[in-house]
Amino acid sequence: MIDQINRAYVLNLLQRLLSIPSPSGYCRQAMNLLEQEAGKLGVSFESLPKGGGVLTLPGQSDEPIGLTAHVDTLGAMVRSIKASGRIRLSSIGGFAMNSIEGEYCTVHTREGREYSGTILTTSPSVHVYPDARDLKREEANMEIRLDEKVGSKAETEALGIRPGDYISFDPRTRFLPNGWIKSRHLDDKAGVACLFGLLEWLSVNQKLPPRTVKIILSVYEEVGHGSSYIPEDIREFIAVDMGAIGDDLTCTEQDVSICAKDSTGPYDYDMTTKLIRLAERERLNFAVDLYPFYGSDASAALRGGSNIKAALIGPGVQASHAVERTHEKALWNTIALLAAYIMEQPGS
C-alpha cells in the first residue's frame, strides 16, 4: 500500500499547513484550508462550535470508526506590555522556555495586524548582563522585542497590540532532498497530513471501507481538551499524533509509533494488539512505546466521558515541543497502518 500513497500531495499539504499560524484556539485559517481540501476529495465537512471539524467518509456500514488529529500548535499570548515597550508573554501549551529563546515570532492583533518580533530573555547579551548565561528560562524572564520603533508602553499600544493577542512562532520549515523534514509544529500537522493522505488514497482508488470513517480535527489539543467531544455513535477511536523519541524509547524518525500507554493510562488492549499485528503483516517500520509525559486527543475523549475503545499512533518526531524533526518514511508508515486498520473487517 505504501507505493500507492500520493507522496507529493501529502508533503505539499504538510508544507502549506506548517506555513499557517495556528496556536490553540487561533486555527480558523488552517481549518479553512482543510475544509477546502475535504471538498476537493469529495468528503463532507461539518464545522463544530469549538472551531474544529468532522469529516465523514461513508463506508459499507453506518457503524463509524473515529480518527482524530489536532490542527492547533504551541504558541503564546500577550500577557502585558512593559514600560520599555517590550511584550511579556504567556505560554499556550507545555513547552520549555529555553526551546523558544531566540525564536522569531509574530504578534497577531484582533484587528488583523501582524508584527514581527524575537523572543529573548531579559538579559540577552553576554557583553552587558552578568547573568545572561545563568538566568532561569521562565516566563517572567522572557520578553518579545518587536521589530518596530517602540521604546515605551504607549508606543507599543499605539500599534494596536493589547493583552490577549496571539503570538505564533516561526516554524522554520525545511524539506530536505533525503527525506528529512524539520520544523516546529510537526506535532501534529504531520498527523493531519497523514489523515488527508489516507483520504486521498481512499478517494483516488475508490476504496469503500467496511465502516464509515469519521475524522475529527481538533483545535485545542495542546491545552488538553481538543477532542473532549466526539460524535456519540463512535465506539472505536484512534488518535494520530506524533510519536516521541528518546531515553529508553524505541521509536525512530522513520517509524510509525504505536503507544501502549501514556500519562493517562493504557490504551485499549485489543486495538493496540490489532495495530501491532497489522504493522507486522504489512512489514512496516514501527515501534511500540510508553509515553509517561504525554496525553492525546483519544485520552481527552475518554476524560470527556466518551464510551469508547481508544488507541494512539503517529509518525516518530524527535525533539517534540521544540525544534522537531521527522522523516517522510514515518508519514508513509503511518498512512499505511491507518489504511490497513480501517480496511479490516470489524472483528477480524
Rank of each mutant, 00 (worst) to 15 (best):
L11C: 11
N12V: 05
L13C: 02
L14W: 05
S19Q: 14
S22Y: 12
S22G: 09
Q29L: 13
N32D: 14
L33C: 05
Q36A: 10
E37H: 03
G39V: 08
K40T: 11
L41Y: 11
G42Q: 04
L48W: 01
G51E: 01
G52M: 08
L55S: 12
P58M: 08
Q60I: 13
Q60C: 10
D62R: 13
E63I: 07
E63P: 00
E63M: 07
H70L: 10
D72G: 05
L74H: 02
V78W: 04
S80I: 00
S84E: 13
G85F: 12
R86W: 03
R88Q: 15
R88H: 14
S90I: 01
S91G: 08
A96W: 10
M97S: 05
M97P: 03
N98L: 13
I100R: 06
G102R: 05
Y104M: 14
T106M: 10
T106V: 15
V107K: 11
R113T: 00
S116I: 02
T122I: 12
T122L: 11
P124I: 12
V126F: 12
V128M: 14
Y129K: 09
Y129N: 13
D131I: 06
A132F: 08
D134C: 03
R137E: 05
E138V: 15
A140Y: 08
N141H: 15
L146V: 13
D147P: 00
S152Y: 12
K153T: 05
E157G: 09
G160W: 14
P163M: 02
D165K: 07
I167G: 07
S168I: 08
F175K: 00
F175H: 05
L176Q: 11
N178Y: 07
N178P: 01
G179C: 06
I181C: 11
S183P: 14
L186N: 12
D188L: 08
K189M: 13
A190I: 15
V192H: 05
C194W: 06
C194I: 11
L195V: 08
E200W: 06
E200V: 02
W201P: 00
L202Y: 10
V204K: 11
N205S: 15
Q206D: 13
K207H: 14
P209D: 04
P210D: 03
P210E: 10
T212Y: 00
K214N: 02
K214T: 00
I216S: 10
L217T: 04
L217Y: 12
G226V: 09
S227A: 15
P231S: 08
E232H: 06
D233E: 15
D233I: 02
E236D: 15
V240H: 02
G246I: 06
D247R: 14
C251K: 02
S257K: 07
K261T: 09
P266Y: 07
P266M: 11
D268Q: 07
M271W: 01
M271R: 02
L278M: 11
L278S: 00
A279E: 07
E280N: 04
F286D: 07
V288R: 14
L290M: 12
Y291Q: 11
A298W: 03
A300N: 14
L302A: 11
G304T: 06
G305W: 11
A310N: 12
A310H: 09
A311Y: 03
A311H: 04
P315K: 04
G316K: 09
S320F: 00
H321L: 09
A322K: 00
V323D: 07
R325M: 15
R325P: 00
T326R: 01
K329V: 02
A330C: 09
N333V: 08
T334M: 10
T334A: 02
I335Y: 06
M343R: 05
